[in-house]
Design a binder for these strands. Sequence first.
DNA 1: TTGCTTGCAAATGATTTGCACTGCT
DNA 2: AGCAGTGCAAATCATTTGCAAGCAA
Lengths: 158, 158
Amino acid sequence: MENPTTSPPDEKSLDRHAFVLKRLSNKNHRYTTGRHRLVDALAGSDKPLTLPDIVAIAPDLAASSVYRNLEVLEQCGVVKRIASGRDHAHFELAEPLLSHHHHLVCTECGAIEDVRLDDEVEELLDQRLNLVAARASFKPLHHSLDLHGHCANCEGLL
Amino acid sequence: MENPTTSPPDEKSLDRHAFVLKRLSNKNHRYTTGRHRLVDALAGSDKPLTLPDIVAIAPDLAASSVYRNLEVLEQCGVVKRIASGRDHAHFELAEPLLSHHHHLVCTECGAIEDVRLDDEVEELLDQRLNLVAARASFKPLHHSLDLHGHCANCEGLL
DNA sequence: TTGCTTGCAAATGATTTGCACTGCT
DNA sequence: AGCAGTGCAAATCATTTGCAAGCAA
């Protein structure tokens, strides 16, 4: 809402693209303009986007290609998919590109907001999760922590 | 896998059904045999079930009715939906019927396992989450914490 | 009885896929 | 040149819905 269609080519953006390029190259994929635009769209938002969101930001991207590229980028560890249950899935840049955070998920309208926790809490959490994972012979990759409830707007309408 | 199709009518089961009945009545819904069977199916598993899982356990339940009833039970706070992203959603009994727990989600095969954390950690977590929620004027209802990674089986195959 | 529930079949809608074309490398 | 990537349209498939018949209160 407050972001331009394309990010300015600042330092952060350069780093980001270098990173994505490396990840794609590792798996013998090309960093095409379409993928570039997709990454820019995700980078330009402070919250996870749905496919309609993405296409609204970059109207010349074909929906099917966006889905295909989200899949490729997900497998390269550049994009993370967030299943909200109802209707469209949400997508955001993955961990190395976005600092570790969690989500406030509105159960009424499906809106998703980013939030961060103290390192102290995160550390404790990881510690305990690693413990229970080990107990189940489960190899942990990452955790996701969401707070479900009503956003300010929906709570007002109830 | 290790559970019978219907739970024995032990004390726990009686409590459970009394609870579900009350929740349904509150919203002027009936506790029909189909819903009874559905709750039994979910109660008889130690992990969240997909629709195919449920229909496999209770083959005489019509898929459409199961979906409708899962929805009703979800709105009554009896069932919780877990969006796994890929393919089918998973369903489990909600908090008052199942003690608070989290999930180990296998990113390879989609399997979900239940795990529990210390009360101490849970308390700290809720405390911090309430804090960030308040900051965003967000009314918290519950949190979900999943650990994503590879289950023992998939890790073996990789 | 009354109208919530159900089952079947058909509809919906997000995501995926086939295929011919485009454009990197 | 050669093959990954794209766009369009058509296909897929979990989930939802319309409607006539069934069952709980």
